[in-house]
Structure formats: structure tokens, C-alpha cells
Design a protein around this nucleic acid. Structure first.
Lengths: 272, 272
DNA sequence: CGGACTGTTGACAAACTTCAATCCGAGTGG
DNA sequence: CCACTCGGATTGAAGTTTGTCAACAGTCCG
């Protein structure tokens, strides 16, 4: 816990710290958190008394381990994380990825211990709210309640993305869906939806998609050969979004055509 | 909306209705909901003013459609539901199943429209809390807040189960995991974890597991032939829980042994 | 410079999907 | 009351995708 930075009064936004009433922690962090999560501006004016700290993590570090006692709710401030669950014999299943604004550890509330662990994919930092503060007897910060509900809802909705990826039969379709998902995430953060840097390795992608990492590699090559994407290691550029979307449609085929998805031809070529 | 039953004051628990202040709906339903979700008894004593109604559904009916505007939070009172998402070309992906105590539609909070739909697998009923009541300006029922957080957390944790099932390579392992999950769910409801009735068809199971429904059928036959389970249509009895657990471990093999999982022999036989 | 890790590509066998036929039960209508 | 149909479930056969094993290139780090 030596890498926990406490926001002390008079650190970044001096005027906000003046409102902090009793806790040893200023409310700069709370204000920043609320702003990040898109709370109505000014909503935290009401006796905003909730201790929020910021924790830094280095690439590769576990933010919290699977099975650890749940003691806090976290929100990604910067960096990215992978959510993983060990399937009881050592295999690490990647359940999803978290970037700025995502809540971490919410699923631990019901069990009081973390069903899934979180590992930093790069250097980053998170906001931390202790559960006993959040659920304590003190006055509730209703703006915070709202954004936490919102964030939890997003997390639940995002879990559907995993199913969406795994539901596809064809490996190329899975990859296309994954890329489109990541693209959408980038867009939501105001970054380019066409060019981005994947923060995770092929193994993580493979685990997330339910495939062997060699298959992921092959599919990247395939999509690249079809001219749909340009790939260099973790650097990705989406060249043909419509075709990618078409490819992503390939489900457990109740479709008319969709052909045998040959090795040489792009299935999405003959349609648009 | 003609199948919405309102709890009118003086229906079941007359004394609770006396506390209902202004709303046209009594608080019998709220009390029942809080009890179902395991709120600390007596916690609703504090000005419990939250309109809760009960909605009945018939087997096969959609409780809410995918894409519909989010207007309420629901909690399964009795019956069971499947959560599904249409993958954009008509294929219905099953994301999970909900039974008594589970929250429905929580993922719609962030989008204001339902990313996933819910269909009743049998006749049942749900508690309904309108979003404008829950998030409104009225005084918050903190006991309700607590259990809603808890339920949402459970839903998020449950979404990991889907990944757990799909993560397995071998189809038998997937089925074993699914059965163990359902068994655990039954146990949590105080029902027998060894004998139960599956409320969903093979197609739904197959969709949930990411397999063809024929494969599911074959796997049931396989597990049955191995003596691990006894199956008759949707009636299931788990005969060898330890062996099932062993079989469920079969992951994307970083294991030592685990053999080629032959068609004739039970992989879990030579170990216990 | 050696070592470890990531990413790519090839070959083969196994498992799964797909198509197809069949059986069974429930619900319907003559 | 029985024949009929419809859908769910089971089982078989064939083809294809993908997992696994293996080798190799590139990069980072000690």
C-alpha cells in the first residue's frame, strides 16, 4: 500500500479542498472522479464528503488479486487493465479490459471478495473509494451514487461484449468483433476509432476471444491480407469498417450464403 | 401493460400498508422485495416510500425487448428468464439465465435503453421499480440501495460464469461447468443441487455455451453414458459431482495429463 | 552476447459444425 | 378418440475449422 497517493488539501484545486470538511483526504479526487464519470456539473456542491484517494500502478502489476478480500471500489483514471479469472487449474481466462472511466471490483460487493482479478497492462492510476466509506453510515453523495450506478451498469453491459465475441463461430468474425469493440471504446474516449494501439498481447486477446493465440495471429494475417486492416504488432489500423462490420455479422449461420469462408477470398468482398 | 398487478393498500400485510404515505401503491411489495433480497430485517422501517409493483408474465413472453427504452428495474420474484441479445442478423445469443432474486434490466441504466432482452421461460412474476422513482428526487430508501447494489454486483459476477463456460475447449467440460453452475444456483435457492429441472431448451443451453445444439445433445449422452449424470429431457440428476468437477477443470490445456478425451472412456475415471 | 518473451507461420489430428433422418411428446382438429 | 402436425431432442455421417506441436524471426533486457 505504499503506492497510494493521498490527495492532501491544497494540492491541485485549492478551492475545492476548502470544502473538504473532516476527512484527512481532500476532495480534489472526488471532484475529478465525478467529472470523469460525467456527473452533472456542480452536482457535488452538496456536502461532498467522501474520501477518495488515487492509487498508482505499474505495468504488469496486479491491482487486486482474485479471491482477495473486497475493501474498495476503484475507477480507472488512466492506463488500462485486464480483468481475469483463474479457472481453478492455472489457466487465466481474460474476462474483459478496462480503460478510463471503467469501474473495477464492483463484482466483489456481493461476495465481499473479488471473484475476478485485475492486472495493469501499462502504467496507470485509479481512484479508490473504500467500501466502508461508500456504504457507511455517513451522508450519501447522491451524485456519486448516480455515477456509480451508471458505471456498474456499463460494466454489466460490457460483459455482454464478451459473449458477443465468443458467440461467433468463425475466428475471423470474432476478431472483427473484438476490433470493432475496441474501436468503439476508443471513440467513446475521443480517440481515433480507426487507428489505435492495442495494450494487450496476443495471448490476452486469444483468451478473451476463446481461441488459441496462434489462431488470433493467423486471423490478423488473414484480415490484413484481405485489406480490411493494417497490422503491425499491436498497432492497428482499420481500413474497411463496413467490410469489417459485415464480417462481424457471421454468426452461427442461419444465413443464406456466407460461403465456406475460404482461405483465399474475403467473405465480405462479394457483397458490398 | 395490462398484466401489471398493483399492490393496493390492505391486500396482504395490512400493517405495512399503513406506513405507505402518499403513493397509490402499498409497500407490501417493497417489504417482500427487501426480504427476498436479504435486507437486514427491520431496515425498511425508515420512511419506506418507494413504489413497487408486481408484474406477471406468461411462459415465452418477452419481459422487455432488446433496444426498448429503459423505464424500470425488475427483480425476479418467481419463475425464470433467459437474457438474450440479437447479434444483428437474427441470431439470438443467450447471455444468461435469471431466477428468483436476480435483477433484470440493470444494464439499461447507462444507455437508457435495454442492451439485452429478457424472455420468460415459464410463468412467473417480477417486482418492478420505475427508474424515475428509484433515481428520483424523493428520499432514498437506503436498505433498497444496499440490496440493489448487491444484486447488481451479483449480476456482474454471474456474467463471469458465461465466460467460464465458454472458456473450456472440450464441449463436455463446458456442459459440466454449466450443470455445476445451475446446481449451485439451485443450492443457493435452497433446492436440491443434485436433482433439478432445467427450464430452458437445448438450443438455449447451446447458445449459452457457444455450441451447436446437437453437440449439447451428444454431450448429455456422453456424460450419461459415463455415469456422471442421469438425463431425461430437461430432468437432470448429478450422480458424480466430484468427477463432474474434475471434468469441468479441462481448460485450454496447460495441464500435464488430461489425455485425448476419447469417445469411449470417461476422462475423470482414472483419477479419483 | 545469451536468454526470454512475443509474434508469426506450417503441418497434422481431433473436435466441432453442418446436413439429414428419426423418435417422441404435446397440442389441435376432424 | 384418433390422426395430424409441430417442435424438441437424439443420433449418424461428412467436411472444415481450429487446437496442438513445432520451428523461426524480432525485440527487449540482463
Amino acid at each position: 500500500m505504499d503506492n497510494v497517493l493521498m490527495f492532501t488539501p491544497g494540492r491541485a484545486q485549492r478551492q475545492a479542498a476548502a470544502e473538504a470538511p473532516v476527512f484527512g483526504v481532500g476532495n480534489d479526487a472526488l471532484a475529478e472522479l465525478l467529472e470523469m464519470l460525467g456527473a452533472a456539473p456542480g452536482a457535488q456542491g452538496e456536502a461532498a464528503a467522501m474520501p477518495v484517494s488515487v492509487q498508482r500502478v505499474r505495468a504488469g502489476e496486479m491491482l487486486f488479486h482474485e479471491g482477495a478480500a473486497a475493501e474498495a471500489l476503484r475507477f480507472v483514471r488512466c492506463g488500462s487493465f485486464k480483468l481475469q479469472r483463474t479457472v481453478a487449474d492455472g489457466y487465466e481466462q481474460v474476462l474483459g479490459f478496462a480503460t478510463r472511466g471503467d469501474v473495477l471490483g464492483f463484482d466483489a460487493i456481493c461476495t465481499r471478495s473479488h471473484p475476478t482479478g485485475a492486472r495493469a497492462l501499462e502504467d496507470g492510476s485509479v481512484f479508490v473509494i473504500r467500501l466502508r466509506d461508500f456504504f457507511g453510515t455517513g451522508p450519501r453523495v447522491s451524485a456519486l451514487d448516480t455515477v456509480v450506478h451508471h458505471a456498474a451498469s456499463s460494466a454489466l453491459a460490457a460483459s455482454g461484449d464478451l459473449a458477443e465475441v465468443m458467440a461467433a463461430v468463425a475466428a475471423e468474425a470474432r476478431l472483427a468483433r473484438f476490433l470493432l469493440q475496441w474501436s468503439g471504446r476508443m471513440a467513446r474516449q475521443g480517440r481515433s476509432p480507426r487507428r489505435f494501439h492495442l495494450r494487450m498481447g496476443r495471448r490476452d486477446i486469444a483468451s478473451y476471444m476463446g481461441l488459441a493465440h496462434e489462431t488470433v495471429s493467423r486471423c490478423f494475417g488473414l484480415l490484413s491480407r484481405w485489406g480490411l486492416v493494417r497490422v503491425d504488432k499491436r498497432e492497428v489500423e482499420l481500413l474497411e469498417m463496413p467490410a469489417l462490420r459485415l464480417l462481424a455479422l457471421n454468426t452461427r449461420r442461419p444465413m443464406d450464403e456466407a460461403g465456406p469462408a475460404s482461405t483465399a477470398r474475403c467473405p465480405a468482398a462479394g457483397r458490398g
